[in-house]
Write a protein that binds this DNA or RNA. Sequence first.
RNA 1: GGGCCCGUAGCUUAGCUAGGUGGAGCGCACGGCUGAUAACCGUGAGGCCCUGAGUUCGAAUCUCAGCGGGCCCA
Length: 1072
Amino acid sequence: MNIITIYFQHGAYHMIEEITNQYDPQKIEKKIHDFWTEVDAYSKVREHRKGGKRFFFVDGPPYTTGHIHLGTAWNKIIKDSILRYRSMNGFDIVDRAGWDMHGLPIEVKVEGELGFKSKKDIESYGVGNFIEKCKEFALTQKDDMTDQFQMLGAWLNWKDPYMTLKDEYIEAAWWTLKQAQDKKLLELGKRVVNWCPRCETAIADSEVEYEDRTDPSIFVKFPILGEENTYVVIWTTTPWTIPSNVAVAVHPSFEYAKVKAVASDGREDVLIIASELVDTVLKKGRYADYELLGTMLGEDLISLEYASPLADLVPRQAEMEHGIYLADFVTAENTGCVHIAPGHGMDDFDVGKKHGLPIFCPVGPDGRYTEAAGEYAGMHIREANRVVIEDLNERGNLLSEGTIEHRYGHCWRCKTPIIYLATEQWFIKIGELKEQMLSEIEQVKWYPEWAGSARFRDWVEGARDWCISRQRYWGIPIPVWKCSSCDRIHVIGTKQELQEMSGITEDVELHRPYVDELLLDCECGGKMKRVEDVFDVWFDSAVASWATLRFPQQREEFDKWWPADFITEGQDQTRGWFYSQLGASMVAFGKAPYKSVLMHGFTLDGEGRKMSKSLGNVIAPGDVIEKFGADTLRSFVLSSSAPWEDLKFVTGELGNINRTLNILWNVYRFPLPYMALDRFDPSEVSFISVMPHLRKEDRWILSRAQSLVAEVDEAMSRCTLHKALRSISEFVLEDLSRWYIQLIRPRTWVEADDPDKLAVYRVLYDVFVLISKVIAPFMPHLAEEMYQNLVGNVYPDAPITVHMTDWPVVDESLVDKDLETHMDMVRSIVEAASNARQKVGRKLRWPVSRIVLSPVNQQAADAVVDLKSVLMDQTNSKDIVLTAIGESWDELGFEANPDPGAIGPVFKGDAGKVIGAIKSANAGELKKSLALHDQLELQIAGASVTIKPEMVNFTETLPEMVASAQSVAGIIYVDANLTRDIESEGFAREVIRRVQDMRKELNLAVDDNIRSHIQINDERVLDLVLDREQFIAKETRANVQVIGLDLDTSGSLEKDWEVEGISMKIGISRAK
RNA sequence: GGGCCCGUAGCUUAGCUAGGUGGAGCGCACGGCUGAUAACCGUGAGGCCCUGAGUUCGAAUCUCAGCGGGCCCA
């Protein structure tokens, strides 16, 4: 039968259904997904909360790679759990899913599919065709990923997501740039940028990946003008930048040495090097010897000028003056003199700017030298390293050549080593916003606190102006039009403005190449053409918080919702989305776009290494779901560690979680057959009606359930989702499975109408319904499954899904903290009793006559009185005896242990006799006297000696067949001495257990009756068993039962048993 | 090289804010229960609390310095 129809079928009885034996997450989750789709649960739930307290959530848009990984799964699971929790708490939620769909990664993918190698291939294929391919690719990937996210049970607005490739989104970016222009925060400038020579574009700092790489390591001698054979020595790992050298930088306060170095062939060079580095540099240059000519500070070197060793190859180098300048960034490494090429380095550029040096950059976007590089023109810089080294060597300027392995930046997409190029780019002047940004950070609530106050703050403090332009195709076109005759600039803010200014009436797509074709009229009468750049993709996602509200197209929603109440992303987004959003929002609105931020960790493999394709340790969420189900995956990632800590993915732990859910399933399943048998209808058995019949343990579990809700609320308020999950798990395992269910089992077996049984049903029902709600944010499928059966099948008017129900409010009237404490103590006593039983070898099936507790305090004593029946029941004891608080049990014996250390010094030679006397004395009296008089006279060989308390230690001795164990309530003693009655009950239970075992083997129904024949080959035991003949027949549902010494035991099943050394033979058959 | 975070039993972790005999789960060994039974429960063994120094009567906890891992930056 289709379960969906079950949910809607309500017969005469409101029936809770029996469920499968095993927790089967795949089956349940499939069923629940179908159900959600069928009733459109998500939309209905969001609709249901319309008009409630507002909660504006912005989804950090994953890049449309086509497949989700564990990290993105974790991310969405956190989001989903928090949103479900909020929704149940009455919040009206905005939660459009987001997709980041522009940029190089997709271009690179499409280039790969089309077999392209460079931008020229794209141009000849046609930019329009290329853009269409990229769009199609992004949209397909988006759909694939949506399916994968939905498998996790993540409820976001998937039907109407925001997509960075949509015109409405592009307009949000354009509008933002126009704000920057209006506020004079947009700047076109020549700057040194990270440049990928393959992609032929600037790339953001955040797109640079650092990896180990082997590069040349060369020391070069620059000849000082006007001094014979004198050189300043520099070091570099990029020989190809030597043709672009403009200056040398030294540190103002370092000491530099001028040394005469003698080569092995007798040639002499005068070299300028930082003093402390002379030895190492000369060693590199294989000089035989040197002589120190003098020392000076860096600031004394600035009058020197030098010539480029490559002046004959690069005409511009011959024209240029080369000087020595001061810079604080110079370190005492290598030579202490730094090669400065302002066209090829950030620091270099700054030095150049400061001193008005030429920004000489003879390298084109494709990584080849331009005409300005003279002889090198047309050569690719990759080949140039070798050639430059050779040229330097030929000219006698190469002091040393080697290689070095170091961390070097690579393009994050195509892995090409980046270079630094001085180029014209568009910048947002973050420098001017920094102070405001720092103060806005403090207005935001960060989870954890240090993510904002330390980490993010540190990043923002060091932030540089933001280069937002890229020289590519698949991105939001930068909406800047420039006049070809007067260089005037206009920034377009909306599509409408573009249409008006370009005079077109038809719709236009806001991508390249379409917008490139539109020309605007300039005030000067000339024509304005769009600059060719597109936006850095980080700028796309930066405007998500208002783009998701369709601003600037719609103003109302923006005014109503913005800024975001909450966002959460991985720690890598500190420099990424947390930052880009803040920057863009400062430009647009002058304030932070989010009120609270949860920074979560990274997923690592079992060894604690990051998951990466190259390591081959990537785990696909889909595989995990297939094996364990989404709820298990969700519980695992949520409970393993605090959200902001890294998550080690250990497969074994998943099994653990799975087991916990299975126990929850079993606990939930346990009473259902009885309830079904009794046609228990919760809608007809009110809680009020069972209240007079509640036992202590019922009140206890109800109190614990309320405490659980409070714990989860507390955890959620701190974003400590792992604590919420652990509280749930502890409640299920400890309180429900290991305790409450054990306590109430016999009550569910009663066959007649019984208020005590109904009370249990009602309590269990309420607890399960509460659990279904409490787990709903975290295990939405299992929660739904439970809810539909418990509530959906019973109350036709109930909310259609558990996710539409209200989050439980703690009912203080049900909370009884004293009772909870008492129960903790009782449980500890039961555990201790079990321990003690093992020591005396008495299994639980055999009652013990009494358990004695020496309570540690009043509370412990109260607990025993309060919960005596639970205690007797669970320890299977006939009586519980309390001593006075802190008092020993008076049936204990004592043993006196003389302490030779205390006796020896006092009695010297007689010590041995004293020790013997103490040992042979009556320990109990000894103890009493010492306690009473603080000393004791003993007669030894006619002499009287004085014994002091410190001379004797007493240890308790236990009576025969008594064992003790420690509990939190105090030490307990289990008296396992047998009486006829106990022995009779013990053997009877042994018999019952074996008959039950055989019933099971025959697959008898719980309520089937039997005929049984029990042969016991021991007269004494037979006699004992016969004492409880009725009891045995009742427990085993035997209509006919014969117990005897020698009888025919034939039946459907016949078995031989050995019980405590006595052989028995039992035969049973089903009674008609 | 810099910033932030993490390091506790074979594995996953609690305890750290507020210093006072380090608790769990898994696994392992042994046992119990047998109307949750392909389920459930108990007991036991197992810890230089990463290392070293400092503060303190007392440090897993606070401070400093190292080592190892993660994210980010240079």
